[in-house]
Simulated assay, not measured.
Amino acid sequence: MLHTTSLLAEHFSLLAAQPCWQCTANYGSWLSLHFGQPRIVVREPVPNAKALAMRRRRADVQGDFLLWIEMAAWEYSEDDKPLLHSEQPRESLQQAAARLQGQCISGVRLLHARTETIFDFDQGGQLRVWPHGDARADDPLWHLYLPEKILTLQANGHIAHGSLSQELSSFVPNETVSVTLG
């Protein structure tokens, strides 16, 4: 098994010095941050789907890498001053996404005792992520999608990683980890 520091460094180092783009505040409090070269991804229609949207072809621009904050609470700060958080109205969530736009991840800290992750950005931004109060143990807090690979942190502290086409390996880190990128 990989050491937690090595695993985070291996995955997040690919994002070093790459500004995030197409940062969006999606459904609920989800945040999506794309990195790397853009590409068009086409999803063909599913003719028998119940949802009309699934019966239509969809084309999206995606990056080589996607950091997706999913089932988590979060707070965005600049220069150690909290500014925006996941419980605010939609326009505040969109402001957080706009402030992340163009920033590069400069470090990742995983505070295992609290299942909290802190993403540091090169222009003074900081995104702190932790489980919602009503989170289920297997709720994913965030995912880092790489070409053919994924790294996920769940609310119970488990880190899952591996190939997108196979069952993921999972473990609970027994340490606080800090990785500086760049």
Rank of each mutant, 00 (worst) to 15 (best):
D79Q: 15
D138M: 03
L100T: 12
V179C: 00
A25I: 04
V129Q: 05
M54N: 11
T115W: 08
Y145S: 13
N156I: 00
L181S: 09
Q123S: 13
P45Q: 09
R56I: 01
T115D: 06
A135G: 04
A113M: 13
L8K: 00
G125K: 00
G36D: 08
H112A: 15
P19H: 09
Q95E: 12
F12E: 01
V61E: 07
R114E: 11
G36I: 00
L66T: 01
L14F: 12
I150K: 06
L153P: 02
S178Y: 10
L2Y: 04
A137R: 07
T117S: 08
I40P: 00
P45A: 04
K149H: 08
A17N: 14
P147H: 09
P45M: 06
A135H: 10
G125T: 08
T5N: 00
L141M: 12
Q22M: 09
C23Y: 05
R58V: 11
R136L: 14
A137D: 09
G107I: 07
H11F: 14
Q62P: 04
R57D: 03
A96L: 07
P82E: 09
S106V: 05
F119Q: 06
E167S: 12
A73M: 09
V108K: 14
D60Q: 06
S6A: 11
A98G: 10
A9N: 07
S169N: 11
L2E: 15
Q103Y: 04
H11G: 06
H3G: 09
E116N: 10
P131H: 08
I159Q: 04
S170A: 08
Q18S: 11
S29M: 04
L52Q: 08
L100W: 07
D79W: 10
L110D: 03
R39Q: 15
E75L: 09
L110Q: 04
D134M: 03
A73T: 06
S92R: 09
D139W: 07
L153W: 06
E148W: 10
E91G: 00
L83E: 14
Q88S: 02
W30R: 12
S178N: 03
H143D: 05
Q94R: 08
S6K: 13
I150S: 12
P19R: 11
P82S: 02
Q166R: 15
V129H: 05
Q88D: 05
G124H: 08
Y76D: 03
L110C: 14
S77W: 00
S29N: 10
H85A: 01
V61D: 04
V46I: 13
N48C: 03
R90Q: 13
H34D: 11
E91W: 12
H161N: 02
G28R: 09
Q126F: 00
I105A: 15
D134K: 02
L93Y: 07
D139V: 02
L144D: 02
Q126M: 14
A9F: 07
P131G: 06
L33F: 11
L127Q: 10
F12S: 00
H112I: 06
P19M: 02
E148I: 00
Q103S: 14
G125W: 01
G36T: 03
E44H: 02
L146R: 15
E116Y: 13
A73P: 00
Q154L: 13
Q123W: 11
Q101K: 13
S163W: 14
I69H: 13
L110W: 15
S106K: 10
T4P: 08
A160D: 03
F171R: 02
L83Q: 14
I105W: 10
